[in-house]
């Protein structure tokens, strides 16, 4: 019982203290840039969880998911192909490293040239930007499939598609998930950036609109909203990862304690 209390206390203690400090420090703030937290929260509830939820947040999230899923499908399948062949890997690795090293937001002005400023451009930018970490991690994971496991699969006639599903993808999955996690944070960045340049709706667009019209409380609230979105996606990601990689975490614990 005290154990649970202790954990709850540790979990919520610091966040409550920090929020309280913000609340009281800003309570009577007349500083233009730092409005009272109460005002910010009011705006968060009224605006961002009000009309803007459907008008701005949902379109942003849909574009994010579309771009991210596109990247995942492309990057994992390409990664498996590239990772399987030593030669292809050797030829493409420097090229891929170069593409990964380009800061993804610089693609926005380039892609705008020929894709315009619609949803299509944003989805392509998100997909193109976040596929490199996924791709390179998949290549690495596929390359490093354990040789004994690989021999075992061969002796039992596990080849072709069964080999892919039962051996290669699961074996590479810890690496793939590391890439997926990096890719997700890039995708969120690109979701926002692509809306800053040219857009008629979206979370990034609306926050900047608020900032340009000096609606300060709304700007802060929009930032909180972005933070919440990032946090929520991270939590969802972790849930999926923990399910998929339960074996891997167990294996690591077992290795560490032996």
């Amino acid at each position: 019982m005290t154990g649970i209390l202790r954990r709850v206390g540790l979990m919520f203690g610091l966040p409550i203290v920090l929020l309280a400090a913000w609340w009281f420090a800003s309570a009577n703030s007349v500083d233009f840039f730092f409005p009272p937290l109460s005002k910010i929260l009011e705006s968060l509830v009224d605006e961002w969880f009000g009309p803007r939820l459907a008008a701005d947040v949902v379109p942003s999230v849909l574009r994010l998911l579309a771009g991210y899923l596109l990247a995942v499908v492309l990057a994992v399948s390409l990664g498996v192909l590239i990772g399987t062949s030593r030669t292809v890997r050797g030829v493409l690795e420097p090229v891929l490293e170069f593409f990964r090293a380009i800061p993804p937001p610089v693609l926005v002005p380039i892609f705008m040239l020929f894709l315009g400023i619609g949803d299509g451009m944003k989805i392509v930018v998100i997909a193109f930007g976040c596929m490199w970490p996924i791709l390179l991690n998949t290549v690495e994971g596929v390359r490093a499939v354990d040789s004994v496991l690989s021999d075992t699969a061969r002796t039992y006639g596990i080849t072709d598609s069964a080999r892919l599903r039962k051996l290669v993808l699961p074996a590479a999955s810890p690496q793939i998930f590391a890439g997926l996690r990096q890719g997700l944070s890039v995708a969120i960045i690109l979701m926002v950036i692509s809306e800053l340049f040219a857009a008629s709706n979206g979370l990034g667009f609306a926050v900047v609109q608020a900032q340009r019209s000096f609606a300060i409380a709304e700007t802060w609230a929009g930032m909180l909203m972005l933070g919440l979105l990032g946090f929520l996606l991270a939590v969802l990601f972790r849930i999926v990862e923990n399910r998929q990689l339960a074996w891997y975490h167990g294996l690591r614990r077992a290795q560490r304690s032996s």
């Binding site: 950036i193 608020a210 700007t219 930032m223 990032g230 946090f231």
Partner: peptide, 14 residues
């Protein structure tokens, strides 16, 4: 765990 996933581009307006 809460602060880490907040995208830094969220800070752009401020």
């Amino acid at each position: 765990e809460f602060l880490r996933p907040i995208p830094s581009v969220a800070l752009i307006p401020i």
